[in-house]
Design a binder for these strands. Structure first.
Lengths: 219, 219
DNA sequence: ACGGCCTTTAATTTCGAAAATTTTTATTTA
DNA sequence: TAAATAAAAATTTTCGAAATTAAAGGCCGT
């Protein structure tokens, strides 16, 4: 039995931090050596991790790290846009000053880090800090939406999204434009401008789309 | 080992059919007797079921059937509206005549059943048939959205939604208005009228909302 | 009578191994 | 030389039990 932090948490951290190559087979018999426990314990942890989609499971084929896929990246981005637009607009309607305060605080923390990183290389030593602050900002953005189900779904999508970017070693994971984009999102939220907020969330994430989302047509 | 159909499938069917009381503790040691296998096998199956949210898991507290909750019902309904509106509109844009044909076929099957059931009592002998056809109709509605991630997320939400209604023994699970509502949805889809389609999907599901969804305000 | 603490019982987690299934490798045949 | 088949090796699934943790019940004190 691993002490201090359990196997589930350790595997989770490693999976979202890119500690396994994309599409790698995750074999309990191998992993048990890394974590000093039994293969059954690893198997259970992997099942739990599949609940949030950071590993995939197929009967009689076992567990795998999800493949890096531009299609999947596009779909996860689309889902983030959908869920964050909805959650952010509902937060505007329901959140009040307390929510605005929390969002401002989250943004303050994030921008503080982003001002110290003008490039991906400069970000490297701050990556974990930035990563946490970025997630916190987006989670706070939808925090007052009034729906745990929406927040839970968003959290699952966000983890998979992040894992895809990290495993792809993508250039889009961090760009210097982030700082202005996050600022714009904050301002639109505080101005309670839902249309602008939707557009800015979309624009912030659109670099992760393989192609533009299909638009409404006149038939 | 249970023959023919495995433990996972049997438990899944029972869970979405209301075969367990809401909020019931699901104890492997008890269930293994029903399914003639070991508690470990049950435990694994329950982990897999928690992936789609038809059981809940808490460390050191085990597995439970989700509680019946109007709040959760409301949130799942909200998610269905969000995902089905998005998926249906994308299907209009991407699906073409093949999709329209599949949707018409799915509707034909559903309406055939719904014409034979003017009340919940009349539906009783046809419930499984209707249930399958209803799910197929809604899944086909979003089938051409171009996103497996959206469809997978919808499927998870739909199963939880269905489980909530059944476990609540809700009066909203089937209403005679369904037939006209499904008809309207089909027609709006075939007319490629996205605004109307969104409204009709919302109206079709709104009886499962605890209160109206918050609307956009002028500030 | 109620609350707190301790003990016992029940439940969950982890384990290592057996059984079942899949994958890989080697051999034989056309 | 390639394909098919069989055997061996590897992997996954299932199992029953031990270890760990939580819950319940009983007893004592205020």
């Amino acid at each position: 039995m691993v002490e201090e932090t359990d196997v589930y948490k350790l595997l989770h951290q490693r999976l979202v931090a890119g500690g396994f190559v994309a599409d790698l087979k995750l074999q309990p018999e191998q992993l048990r050596k890394d974590y000093n426990c039994s293969a059954s314990t690893i198997r259970e942890a992997l099942f739990r991790l599949s609940t949030v989609g950071v590993v995939t499971f197929k009967e009689q084929r076992g567990f795998r790290v999800p493949q890096v896929s531009r299609v999947v990246q596009h779909e996860l981005t689309h889902m983030r846009i959908l869920l964050e637009c909805e959650g952010a607009c509902l937060s505007i309607r329901l959140g009040g000053v307390a929510w605005e305060a929390r969002l401002s605080a989250a943004h303050h923390k994030l921008s503080h880090i982003e001002m110290r990183a003008r490039s991906k290389a400069e970000l490297e030593p701050l990556f974990d800090l930035w990563s946490t602050a970025e997630q916190e900002f987006h989670e706070t953005l939808i925090d007052a939406c009034g729906s745990l189900t929406l927040k839970r779904t968003h959290s699952i999508i966000y983890q998979q999204f992040r894992q895809q970017l990290i495993n792809a070693d993508s250039d889009t994971i961090y760009v210097p434009e982030n700082i202005l984009q996050h600022q714009g999102i904050l301002e639109a939220a505080l101005d309670r401008d839902e249309d602008l907020l939707r557009r800015l969330i979309h624009d912030h994430l659109s670099r992760n789309l393989a192609q533009p989302l299909p638009e409404k047509k006149s038939w």
